[in-house]
Design a protein around this nucleic acid. Structure first.
Length: 229
DNA sequence: CTCCAGGGGGCCA
DNA sequence: TGGCCCCATGGA
């Protein structure tokens, strides 16, 4: 039971030493983080940047502007991020919630649990998006779980399969690591960094991966290479 | 050409 | 609950 705590601490230490601090979220401003959290749903960050750039260029990356921006116009601006019609709708719902709540700064005053439940009621805001907003924009200690997190844990052998409920994986971290905004921030950012650079779905680069000696996937690949050559 | 990317909701048994 | 499908652009 305490073994997992050790492993999770070890993984963090290794990633931090290897990559250094990531200083997330990429991009700046609370609202940009919040908008980006929706736009990046099942989408490469590269495409999100284009959409965010469009919003900035149009001068509408601001609560009041977004609130009054016609849905059709918003769709057009976020199109590069994919799923643009549904994402425009989701952004509208979220902006409406922020607007009614009195703005982003006002939300920072409400307790984490209540905040999370309110965000999850918004159509289009699921656990990962809600937690990303809470951790990175509102700076409260929730651990963000994403596809990279599950893939990495699965390959290391901590999870038996990637198809595990979000909350179960989140509990794994939050029951073993003391709540800390900065550390949770870096940990998730480091998982994404590792996921992009090494632990990709196809053609993983296990060679100089800082976790390769813990990773069953890397070990199997090594065996393959040995028997092949 | 196929597969993938920092998810989430709707539907149906 | 669990399984399946849909949303869509841009890069590899």
């Amino acid at each position: 039971m305490k073994k997992k705590k050790k492993i999770l601490e070890e993984i963090y230490r290794r990633l931090f030493e290897h990559f250094g601090p990531q200083y997330w979220w990429p991009g700046d401003g609370d609202l940009e983080i919040i908008v980006g959290a929706v736009l990046t749903q099942n989408t490469s960050w590269k495409n999100v940047e284009k959409a965010v750039s469009n919003l900035k260029g149009a001068g509408v990356l601001e609560l009041n502007s977004l609130y009054h921006l016609p849905l059709e116009k918003l769709e057009e601006l976020v199109r590069p991020s994919g799923f643009y019609k549904i994402k425009a709708k989701r952004l509208k719902e979220l902006i409406k919630f922020l607007y009614k709540s009195g703005g982003v700064d006002e939300l920072k005053n409400s307790p984490l649990e209540e905040l999370r439940n309110e965000l999850l009621k918004v159509k289009g805001i699921g656990p990962e998006t809600a937690d990303s907003i809470i951790l990175y924009a509102l700076e409260k200690p929730v651990f963000v779980v994403d596809a990279y997190t599950k893939r990495i844990l699965k390959r290391i052998g901590i999870l038996e399969k990637e198809d595990v409920p979000y909350n179960k994986v989140q509990e794994l971290f939050m029951e073993n690591l003391t709540p800390d905004v900065k550390m949770y921030n870096e940990y998730h950012a480091l998982f994404v960094r590792l996921g992009k650079e090494h632990c990709t779905k196809r053609a993983p680069k296990c060679g100089n991966c800082p976790l390769s000696d813990l990773c069953n996937f890397a070990k199997e690949r090594k065996i393959e290479n040995k028997t092949r050559y």
